[in-house]
Design a protein around this nucleic acid. Structure first.
Length: 302
DNA sequence: ATTTGGTGTTGTG
DNA sequence: CACAACACCAAAT
């Protein structure tokens, strides 16, 4: 970890507002450990006892909090993340993206998604107009660890993750580095409602779309827009996205752009897999990517 | 199983 | 302007 960035004095308020979902976010640490174990050993279908012991938890407690988090048991989760299953996410039919464009973001019979309206800001715009841009930020609990929410008055601009408070500084530095000219201020009052809404599917409403601001190059923004068309609990490959945005050969360029997505989860870069169904990479850790995919499977099965 | 060669975009000098 | 780096991919060892 580089220490050139001295981002001291991150105030940690005592009263972190908790999200209203049925998930107790404090348990994510145990859940994350369990998922890490599962990720390592899913090939040999580990038992609940083994998962719990290797994760340093009691089986009964793990069963309970995991179920509250995902709606399914750790054992079912093991089945949900096998390679075969990941391949199934990639479309049975033509292409998830093709059908998404035909049907629209959310059609009948398809799960609702986090409705989003976006406006793009090119780096040029940002430099010119964003000279006085103020970004409010705050850490909030989420089903995937502590979430760093960053917002402007024009909408949500950044979403990052940290496993525990010791990672806050790094996460914040990672994000502020992307828009060096902006002015940052901690403001939980502004970011709290966004955090609550983003991670609670029951609050996703078509009538009140979530406003987001995409700050990136032309190409990057086009890639991120395409990601928004991948339906909930489904997945697409890098080359499918490349075909849509540019040329099928551009898969690698797409990978680079996907990796720079500043709005993880909201812009669902976790739904992009390699051509063989393997999870290729994730800026905030492959474990978290698996957690998000598994969580979506569980939520959509309900 | 691993290696290789072809790719588009971006950041750096 | 050139060049390396990249969350890729298919084909050839």
């Amino acid at each position: 970890m580089g220490s050139a960035m001295t981002m001291n004095a991150i105030a940690l308020p005592a009263d972190i507002p908790s999200i209203s979902a049925k998930v107790d976010p404090a348990d994510y640490a145990a859940i994350r450990a369990a998922i890490a174990v599962i990720t390592e050993h899913w090939r040999d279908q580990p038992s609940l006892e083994r998962i719990a012991s290797e994760a340093g938890t009691e089986p009964a407690r793990l069963q309970k909090i995991f179920r509250r988090w995902a709606g399914i048991t750790p054992k079912q989760f093991v089945q949900a993340i096998t390679l075969d299953h990941a391949r199934n996410l990639l479309s049975g039919e033509a292409s998830v993206l093709d059908t998404a464009y035909e049907v629209g973001l959310s059609g009948p019979g398809r799960l609702h998604d986090l409705f989003v309206t976006h406006e793009a800001m090119t780096p040029g715009d940002f430099r010119a107009r964003g000279a006085g841009l103020v970004i409010d930020w705050g850490f909030h609990p989420s089903p995937f660890g502590h979430a760093l929410v960053m917002a402007t008055d024009r909408g949500l601009a950044g979403l990052a993750f940290a496993d525990d408070p010791s990672g806050f500084e790094a996460a914040l530095a990672d994000m502020t580095r992307r828009w060096p000219r902006a002015e940052y201020r901690e403001n939980l009052k502004a970011t709290g409602p966004l955090a609550r809404r983003i991670f609670d599917p029951s609050r996703w409403r078509e009538e009140e779309p979530l406003r987001i601001v995409l700050i990136g190059t032309d190409f990057e923004v086009r890639v991120w827009e395409t990601l928004l068309r991948i339906p909930f609990a489904r997945a697409a490959t890098y080359s499918q996205i490349a075909t849509r945005v540019c040329s099928p050969k551009a898969a690698r360029a797409v990978g680079a752009a996907v990796g720079k997505n500043p709005l993880s989860f909201v812009v669902p870069c976790h739904r992009v897999l390699g051509a063989n169904g393997a999870l290729t990479g994730y800026h905030w850790g492959l474990t978290r990517k698996r957690a998000m995919l598994g969580w979506e499977q569980a939520v959509s099965a309900a």
